[in-house]
Nucleic acid binder design. Structure first.
Lengths: 195, 195, 195, 195
DNA sequence: CATGAATGAGCTTTCATTCAT
DNA sequence: CATGAATGAAAGCTCATTCAT
């Protein structure tokens, strides 16, 4: 069980995530110590295992994302605009903290065993989208679709495109990328037969 | 460099993938040996490193998928139907060989460093979709969209929804799941304002 | 060097010895702290090392035994009776404080390096016996034997039989056990050929 | 579970025991490796833990002692002579392999947790003595005493005196020491009142 | 060709000990 | 005086890899 982590230590760790290699098993505790400036033994004073540090990093990152997404929404705006804002915020976060985002993606194998991670992903990615899809379907501003499926599809598409952009361009422009994804999900690929 | 792997050994290994834990670094060579019945030293006679075994497994799985996707397409059918067939084939493959699919997803960190993996993913997932999107846009059976972006979006959506189905239901019905995804991409979430 | 240890702390520690595993190296300072209720850092305020705590425990136990043995002797009694009283007192002490006795035996390896321990063992076990053996030989109430050898033999026999009784019966009846050992040393195993 | 240890490796280890410090916890696996010339990883190929190596050393030493004691007995001799031979053989073994003997004594704490050790001690020390005491009592060549108690007493006395001799003189003359112990046990300390 | 035996190179984790308060 | 927080210094053990047969 981890002790409550002091804020300065948490900051050091989060600021450090970018220096850590993608595959967590290739990161040595000494790497974490060096990169963060926190001695190994001190890390073990606060965390009971290396994996718990990964869990801490990913959880904190998802909490930040959850907050950023919540802050991006304007409750008075129309549902489609709010949905667009959510997707844009998610992409902006990926662009701002690419390391932790890639850390999550690259360690899905371990992440699957870390408790609470699924809840964090749900809170940061799925839940906001699912909620808006349901609201939009209810008030007619969106076509009724299975919110669960659609939210998961959006999550997959947004994440994969975002990471691809990071890998290829080494950079992510949230406005540009959301401007590419959103129309696709908005109108679909059906040929426009309307006059 | 790996020697040419004898077919029976390849079969043993592929049949074995399901028993191997998700995170490759948590799989010991002894685990691979036990699960496949191939002695450790013999594995090293055919592969030069543990990671090469992972690469072999993933490459073979993607080749199978590429073949399955190619076989599913009817060159005489309409583009939207061919696109649907491709997605359905990808999902069917996920359902049939969940272990290797999960192995790929769970080891994106290591996979990123394995040469040829990106090419395999492209051949199995992206290229068929991208080609059909371009063809459809050309002959008017699909709305013109950036094929790169749309193919990546479909890849992300299909993969994530497929894996989600596997994790939650421990099973994947390709027809059902493609029946959920395809309409979403076909029509989008825009409210249907047409009379 | 250890500060003078406050009596309540000494009592806590001595009362605690029973909870500490037999092999001192397997006892963590945290175990001592938990069992005694004395915080780790406080232990280090009074003792300069973990081994010094062991030394303290063993020394105190031997002092108690030395006192108990001295108190058991009646200077006016016959030498053989005094010798019997000494052995009985040693066994009674083993029965009363089995933990520390076992601690001593189980850590002979470390104890050998602890200064003053040998002196304590001598004072508690050897010296009283040796003295009486010499006195008895001098006044004819005991057969003349090498007091050094005989005292050591008695020490070994008494200790081993006492510990064996503790381990097997989880209990030690000093009267019963001394009633078994003393005749053996008194008469030996020579067949009684006298009429 | 330990693999069957190859004879040359066993020999190296046994020959090495003398260089290892008394308290097993103070011996590092690297010390064992250096002293024996067997690499650490190879030790772990044959033993599953450091304690298992201790157990192996002690068990083998006790087996050797058991054999030596059995060989020392002349089945045709009188019981008292056979008993004397047993004690002399035990002391001779202590003198010949002082390191392993001290290893056993110094690690009684850990030894208590090592399975089969008690059986080995019984076979090497107690059983031969107990058997002879019973035989002697039966045919009248020894005084009837509780064989269990007397055997334990002899074990304690012989071991402690033997080790004391080793520690003090750094050497053990089996004939001399048995010449000191045996008369004590033979005649006891009762004053000789016979004419 | 195949493999049992052997090992070099590390890594996580532990824990006695210190020190600022 | 007493102690919670912090850490330096190992140590046991693992495992990918090699190689003689």
């Amino acid at each position: 069980m981890s002790r409550s982590v002091p804020a300065p230590m948490a900051d050091k760790l989060l600021a450090t995530a970018g220096e850590l290699a993608l595959s967590w098993d290739e990161v040595r505790t000494e790497d974490i110590a060096e990169a963060s400036g926190i001695p190994r033994a001190t890390l073990y004073y606060y965390f009971s295992s290396k994996d718990e540090i990964l869990q801490f990093l990913l959880t904190r990152m998802l909490e930040r994302l959850t907050d950023a997404v919540a802050a991006a929404e304007d409750p008075d705006a129309a549902i489609p605009d709010r949905l667009a804002a959510v997707v844009r915020a998610q992409l902006a976060h990926l662009g701002e903290f690419p390391a932790t985002a890639q850390l999550l993606t690259a360690n899905l194998g371990k992440a699957g065993k870390l408790p609470d991670l699924a809840a964090g992903i749900n809170a940061a990615f799925h839940e906001p989208v699912r909620r808006l899809l349901a609201l939009g379907a209810a008030n007619g501003t969106l076509r009724p679709v299975d919110p669960e499926i659609a939210a998961t599809a959006l999550y997959g598409a947004v994440t994969v495109i975002g990471l691809r952009s990071l890998v290829i361009d080494n950079h992510l422009d949230a406005d540009e990328v959301s401007g590419q994804i959103l129309p696709l999900f908005w109108s679909g690929i059906r040929p426009d037969v309307r006059p």
